[in-house]
Design a protein around this nucleic acid. Sequence first.
DNA 1: TGACTTTGATAGTTTCTTCCTATGAACCTC
DNA 2: GAGGTTCATAGGAAGAAACTATCAAAGTCA
Lengths: 306, 306
Amino acid sequence: MNLATPPFTLRQLQYAVAVAEALNFRKAAVQCAVSQPSLSAQLAELEGALGVRLFERDRSGVVVTPAGRTLVAPARAVLEEARALTRDAHQAGDVLAGTLRLGVIPTVAPYLLPQVMPALRKTFPRLTTLWREEKTAPLSVALANGSLEAVVVALEANLGDVDHAVLAIDPFVLAVPRKSPLDHDGPVGLKELKQSEVLVLEDGHCFGDQAIAYCEKKGAPQLEFRATSLGTLTQMVAAGAGVTLLPSLSVDTEVKRAAVRVRPFEKPAPHRTLALAWRKGSPLGPALEKLAAVMREHTAVARVTS
Amino acid sequence: MNLATPPFTLRQLQYAVAVAEALNFRKAAVQCAVSQPSLSAQLAELEGALGVRLFERDRSGVVVTPAGRTLVAPARAVLEEARALTRDAHQAGDVLAGTLRLGVIPTVAPYLLPQVMPALRKTFPRLTTLWREEKTAPLSVALANGSLEAVVVALEANLGDVDHAVLAIDPFVLAVPRKSPLDHDGPVGLKELKQSEVLVLEDGHCFGDQAIAYCEKKGAPQLEFRATSLGTLTQMVAAGAGVTLLPSLSVDTEVKRAAVRVRPFEKPAPHRTLALAWRKGSPLGPALEKLAAVMREHTAVARVTS
DNA sequence: TGACTTTGATAGTTTCTTCCTATGAACCTC
DNA sequence: GAGGTTCATAGGAAGAAACTATCAAAGTCA
């Protein structure tokens, strides 16, 4: 759409409104904090631009013409709206108010959001957060092209050039079926891992990629089948289909729902680093740091010891 | 109310909208028909004024910040409204559209308005006329102080310094009771007038003043009682209370309703000159002339001959 | 009626704003 | 790494808007 600039300025509108109120050029000029000739000139300009006489200047008193009257009310509205716009933009500069579009990966969203949302709402009551749940790659694209302000991802994934604030270290644990040979205390060692079939997520999940990489390094056999979420994965483990790696973040939620035991890995345990990331140099950086601080404060990663 | 000028210009808003659309300073500059540095400078100015960064300028692509997004939609609205305002003011300059506040004296209103209103509505379909019915003096004040654009009055009254367009010559006639000695054909002469008691309007009606002046000049006796409208006056004549002068304009309406005969005066007959009058030098002058022309065309003054 | 005040318009200057062209630094593409 | 993008910056010319001073016309009051 082609929006041409109106042939007048806001200042001219303001002067016109002032004169319509004062019905006196001098007083209007005083109220606008300019000299009377300046105001006269601007109004003459405005009338010229509109091709319409707005005021009749009798030496004794100013009279608003019909054209003037039709102009004044909308002019006041325009000025008022412009002022409101200033205020809105101003407070939008502070991300703590307004709308923030955020991304989050699927292996984090269902566990993190319920934890942090109440705190965010309470700490930033005037902030609206819109969350988009996608795998890392699409999030990265959305972040780069500006359709998201920030994303919650694992730093171990490839993100390109971003700034970030770490939210939590999220160690991986092994979920094993109840009443299986693996259903006992103590950290998982290499030997046990090798004799299990590991269920993993479908392609594209950074957590799945990490799990696969870990298993390959350790020589653990993977099942061909790929699940679409940590929830289904856990249910499959409970059903005895194999074992799986889970991020500690998900443990509290998933273990409640399934007959599995979770056991930590022997040190050094695999893990991911959850962080809030944004475009490098974004002016929102400082504000996003604050946001991240509140999120970090309320992110509870289950500590699996046993 | 104190409406401060917003700290930015409409041009800056336009540039911001253009950039938000093009997501590219150069293309936006082309669309705004300015050089790219000019646009950059204006946007920097705007951002400074708002204290908020509206766009992130990565060398590869522009991204709108949340503050920018909250600004763009209202900015578009402001620009659109400003444009609409231009159009409205423009067409308000042509009185044939918009609202016109008009005054009319009571001895004209009930007879003239039904005649001219349909024509006005038809000829100027986008014109709204607001009519105020008052005696000459208050109309004159209202005209002077700008609360009316024009008035329909008799030029014989004292109006001060106005421009005008004549609508009609309105000869006076004499209304006499049916079945009275005066109830016969032919113009009214001095002798007949002197032997009648003349009923007149209350003070302030210019028509009443003219009637009284005429009677005094001719030596006709006036009844003390003063009526408040031509209608009641006519009814009193029909009841045999005396005779009265009527403007021809009112004859068609009033004679239908009452048992009176109307007779012309001997030449030179008294009369009034109906005109549309407006403030001297008013920019509406040319338009009001057009309005008057249409009114003149549709003003029917009864021709009383007999 | 004549001095005085008040009205908005005009003239001449000065200051500030906006624009232009030219150029620079960072990034992408080939 | 050459060439073509991107937006930002610098310097200077043109324009807009402000100021002070003054004017002509109309109202006010003695």
